[in-house]
Design a binder for these strands. Structure first.
Lengths: 158, 158
DNA sequence: GTTGAAACAATGTGGCG
DNA sequence: CGCCACATTGTTTCAAC
């Protein structure tokens, strides 16, 4: 939370919620839905961005159509938990085209890698080449992801 | 994959890749970067949407600023694997404000729930009220998520 | 695929409550 | 101080090529 930041009011939350459902709506549409003039609405959206509440806008794609026919969640344990090792692992893996997102975890697994690959041979190669080949990796477990659904409701409570 | 669909060429992939990095770029900017006239570029983007390669546009928000101070990954096993039971569980949970996304898994866990909560009391209450309270739930395990990083590179390989 | 005109949306300014 | 109306700028979109 930044300094000099007004707390979010109900209208801010309404704007966030609308944009979270569908970020492609125009400012004008949002303004209409929340009952503000477009300029006032835009002012609020800009403030939400400046305050870091809105951090960006991402495209949703159908990875299956891009050749990502299989999705998997790969649990990884490292043997070395230095900040440098952990952070290097994270950076290296995030840059690979197969890796869609990385969860840095507490608990017995250090990382969950959500990956997409073209087929099971690709999955096997990815696990061997990108993960078990690394010295700091201690344990790897792969589970298939049948389906990944993302909520279209913005988290908001208190 | 739909019928009547042209395979993606290099320019399509370039457009996808640019928009995947930052979906807030204007069509005009994308057109410039890929070396097309804005109208041709827009035509391609529209086609990618019509073909279902681009499925939407999502807002990235800082959940921490919305009161989501803790993120967790909750592994759930059900005792009953009927389609109806599984699908009801998925629908019910996805609509809760704490749940950001649901992975339907193969393997010993049926679901991974990526959730955000305000504090550890909230986490405990959520697990009890939304998960273990359900008859079909057999086993629950909760792990803290320190950090979740999403790739800004679109998955793409043959 | 391009160009250029018309339609529309985003943005900045100044005035009002 | 936040909101609105209006003027300006820029973007999208459509038709003709």
């Amino acid at each position: 939370m930044k300094k000099n930041q007004r707390p979010l009011d109900q209208v801010d939350l309404q704007i966030l919620s609308l944009l979270y459902e569908d970020a492609s709506q125009s400012n004008k549409d949002i303004a209409n839905k929340v009952g503000l003039a477009p300029s006032s609405c835009l002012e609020r959206i800009k403030r939400l961005q400046a305050d870091g509440v809105i951090t960006g806008q991402r495209l949703s794609v159908d990875v299956n159509q891009l050749g990502g026919h299989i999705q998997a969640m790969i649990s990884v344990r490292l043997s070395d938990h230095n900040r440098a090792t952990v952070s290097q692992f994270q950076t290296d893996l995030l840059s690979l085209p197969e890796v869609m997102s990385i969860f840095h975890m507490g608990g017995e697994n250090d990382f969950l890698l959500h990956v997409t690959v073209s087929d099971s041979a690709h999955l096997r190669d990815f696990v061997f080449n990108a993960i078990t080949a690394r010295k700091e990796v201690n344990h790897v477990e792969t589970a298939l992801v049948y389906d990944h659904q993302i909520s279209s409701t913005v988290p908001s409570f208190g």
